[in-house]
Amino acid sequence: MSEAAKSPSIAFDAMRERAAWWLVAPSVVLIVVLLVIPTLAIIGLSLTDLDLGNPDWNFIGVQNYVDLASDRTFRISIRNTALYVAIVTPVSVTLGLGAAILIEAGTELRGFFRSAYFLPVVSLIVAMATVWQYLMHPTIGPINLLLNLVGLPSVNFLGSSDVVIYGLAIIGIWQATGFAMVLFLAGLSAIDPQLYQAAEIDGAKSWWDRFWLVTWPILAPTTLFVTTLTMINAVKVFETVTTLTQGGPSKSSEVLLWTIYEEGFIYLHLGSASAMAVVFIAVLLVLIIIQTRTLDKRVHYG
C-alpha cells in the first residue's frame, strides 16, 4: 500500500489489470480448451491416419487431402452441397425480400404475417423435417395427392436420387425464407422515409420507380449480407439429411456436414474426417470474409 501512495496511477493500473485478468480468466481457459486446442488438433489430426477402429496411427502429411481430391463420396458431397446452396440461397433471399416489402407496404395484419413467416425459423427443424417427409410421401403425402389432383404424376421427393436434393432444398427454402424476411424488414425500417418523399417529389410516381430509385440501392448492402448469411447457413445443412435421407439414396444426398459426420463418427476415420472438416472451415472462411467485407459497407453516411 505504501508503494501505491508513491505513484497512485501505476498502482491503479496494476490493480485494474489484475481485476481484468480475473474477469477474463474463465473465458480464456475455455477459449484455449474448447477452441484453440481443438482447432490446432483438427489440423494436426488431418495429417494423420488416426482411426478409432485401429490402435496404430501414423503421420502421413497431406495424404488425406490428396485422397479427398479423388474421393468419390467427397466430390459428390461437395457437388450436392453447392447445388443445395445454389437453389436455397437465391430462392429464399428473393422470397424473403418480396415478403418483407409486401408486409411493409401496408398496415393490415403486419404482425400476423411477420410471425407466420418467421415461425419456421424457430421451429425444431428435425421435427418439421419429419412433417415434410410425410407431406412429400410418394403415395399418401398431401403434396403428391395435390399433384395428382391437377393431373401431374407423383414425385418421390426424398426417395429418388434424381430429385432428393431438390426435395431437401424445398424444406431449406421453407425454413430460410422467414429468416431472410426479418433481416430485410430490419433493413427496410432503417430507410429514411424522407427519401421516399424526395423520390415522389422528384417524380418517381410508381412503386416500380421508387423501388429502383430508393429501396433497392439502399437495401443492396443488406441483400449482400442476407445472401452470404443464407449461404453460410445452407452450407451447414445437416438436420434434414440426418433425419430424412442419411445421404441416400445411393449417396445422392451426401452433403458436407453429413459426409464429415459419417466419416468421423460412423466409420470412425478421424484422420480423413478432420481433413474434410478443414476444407469445411475453409469454405466457411471464404463466405465469412465476403460477409464482413459487405458489412463494412452497410453505412452510407459517414
Partner: peptide
Amino acid sequence: TRAADRDLAMVFQSYALYPYL
C-alpha cells in the same frame, strides 16, 4: 393531384439526398 404531378421542388430538413448516388 399527387406530389409528383404538382411540379414543385422541395428542400428537406435532412436534405434527403440519395446516399448511394
